[in-house]
């Protein structure tokens, strides 16, 4: 009786999960084995899309994975430091710090991108300041329209997604655990590496995953601050628009998703290895 009623309780969330996650994925999976020719969808199963992906897009995909991994690592580290300060160092400011993090979520995606354009451009805030200070004599043109600009912008955008899960898991660490570690002879670094990081494993992996997936799927930031940069999202998006090749887009998405799963799994493994006692 009881177990049956429990099933009913999870039914709505299971339904939502299926409708919002499983069904579209399944649709994409099926779609990726079809083909489009002259606006006509051919449902003849084919591996042509996957062959195309591995033959022509592996380089961009690899670059995207590298950018996403770098951004996710940096953002996770930054999010960790931020959370650490809020949880252990500036406890009385924790609420304010988190409020600021949340507020930046409301800032909007494009606004942040344009803010960084304003900061990093040839006549931008940074160059103007450096010129005025006499540090440089002509603008550093590589600030904007570069991979670094993409990474910085995406870090700014995704930082809240890294801070929130890490801070949440740090909240689960009792002060007495940290004090016990100190008491048993642990200095700053051992406390961090043997207690805090292992205790935040799930938060750290969640943060990394969020950021990786945000970056891996992004196609607006590279367009606007990347200059000539192309990431896989820039090639996937047109498949669903201008190029009208949903099957190829689906195949690209699924390969990228697989790559993301692998990278995230590897990162998880790394964190777990680190945390092993």
């Amino acid at each position: 009786m009881e177990s049956r009623s429990n099933y009913w309780l999870v039914a709505p969330s299971a339904l939502i999960f299926c409708a919002l996650f499983i069904a579209p994925m399944a649709f994409f999976a099926v779609l990726s084995f079809w083909q489009v020719e002259y606006f006509e969808l051919s449902t003849e199963p084919t591996l042509a899309n996957y062959r195309d992906v591995f033959a022509n897009y592996w380089r961009v995909m690899g670059f995207t994975v590298v950018v996403a991994t770098a951004t996710a690592l940096l953002t996770t580290a930054l999010g960790f430091v931020f959370s650490f300060l809020a949880r252990f160092r500036a406890v009385e400011w924790a609420q304010a710090l988190l409020f600021i993090v949340l507020i930046t979520l409301f800032g909007g995606y494009l606004m942040k991108i344009y803010a960084w354009k304003t900061i990093l451009g040839n006549e931008g805030v940074l160059n103007s300041a450096l010129l005025a200070l006499g540090v440089i004599s002509s603008p550093i043109t590589s600030l904007l329209y570069s991979p670094q600009a993409v990474v910085v912008t995406l870090m700014h955008f995704s930082l809240p997604f890294a801070v929130l899960p890490i801070y949440a898991s740090m909240r689960g660490i009792a002060d007495s655990e940290v004090e016990a570690a100190r008491d048993l002879g642990a200095g700053r670094w051992p406390i961090l590496s043997t207690v805090i990081v292992p205790r935040c494993q799930s938060g750290i992996v969640a943060a990394f995953s969020f950021v990786f997936l945000i970056v891996g799927g992004d196609y607006v930031t590279p367009l606007l601050v990347g200059g000539k940069l192309t990431m896989i999202g820039n090639l996937i998006a047109p498949q669903f628009g201008a190029q009208f090749n949903w099957p190829l887009g689906a195949a690209m998405s699924i390969v990228m998703l697989a790559a993301a799963v692998i990278v995230i799994y590897l990162f998880r493994l790394l964190v777990a290895l680190w945390s092993r006692q």
Partner: peptide
């Protein structure tokens, strides 16, 4: 030769 391949005419 370019610094940017812009996303829109506005950009």
């Amino acid at each position: 030769q370019s610094r940017v391949v812009a996303a829109s005419w506005g950009d």
